[in-house]
């Protein structure tokens, strides 16, 4: 299981444009990816409705996980998107 723990820096949190970019990028993966926030069960990172419902605000920390070979590169990109201000 590979995972990345990042703090969301965008002013709008993981909503709007950052959320769309995040989900579009995750959707390219041939394997499952989840995203979780403290105290909340992980959700499908390829689902915009789920990611929006997670309601990640600026300054909150999320964990992005995938259980697959070669997931590292994509997780790095997702972490980069989530932590961009």
């Amino acid at each position: 299981m590979a995972e990345r723990k990042v703090t969301v820096m965008s002013e709008v949190g993981l909503h709007a444009r950052p959320a769309a970019t995040f989900v579009q990028t995750a959707a390219q993966a041939p394997f499952d990816i989840t995203v979780a926030k403290f105290g909340v069960p992980p959700v499908n990172a390829k689902s915009i409705l789920s990611v929006l419902a997670l309601d990640v605000r600026q300054g909150e920390t999320i964990v992005i996980s995938a259980d697959a070979e070669g997931a590292d590169e994509l997780l790095d990109r997702l972490a980069e998107i989530a932590s961009a201000s």
């Binding site: 709007a16 444009r17 769309a20 989900v23 579009q24 959707a27 499908n44 390829k46 689902s47 915009i48 409705l49 789920s50």
Partner: peptide, 16 residues
Amino acid sequence: RAILEAQSLIAADPLL
């Protein structure tokens, strides 16, 4: 454009 792109993404959501 941003609105319509987001809406397109929702229409393709695996949850739906």
